[in-house]
Amino acid sequence: MFPAYATLRAQTSHRAGVVTLSIQIGDGQIPAGSFRAEIRPNRSMSSRNLVVMVICLTVVCLTIGLSFFSLGLWLVLPFAGLEIFVVGVVVGYTIRRSDDHEVVLVTEDDVVVTKHEGRLTREAKFQKYWAWVRLEPGITRMQPSRLKIGSHGRFVEIGKAIEDRERRELSARLKQVLRAAV
């Protein structure tokens, strides 16, 4: 039995993100022979643990706020509540964005780039035989390179969550896959 994807390369020790490149070699949801790259930023804590952290902070802040409330200094409590609300919003936002990722799927005829950002899923589709990959160096030495894929003058940027070296590798791999198709 083959797994759905056989991972060619799975990097796990990058600062900025993780790239998983796979090629379909058995039964799965994508056509056989297609190429798939998934790019997701590094996240070091699970959503559950972030929620636990917020709950702990809430308990501490509310305990302090309620203690002063019991002494008649009630105005501490609204500030504690406001602060916890901000912490909650920020952590909620972080959790919502923790599953952000990009998928580049090269099938027999198409290149499909799907970006998952929060609740939004955006997809761009290009004809495989016209698609090309462009790796632009940073405008200055201090800026990162930019990896774009597209055709007919329309390009989308991919791989912003990974570092320059990984972008170079991803670029080379995508070029190889597209070249093989021609």
Partner: peptide
Amino acid sequence: SVLGAINIIVTVFNMRAPGM
């Protein structure tokens, strides 16, 4: 200060490199 503190907490909790 509070906004800075929240940012630091979320950064340290959620953005450590693998293995850190």
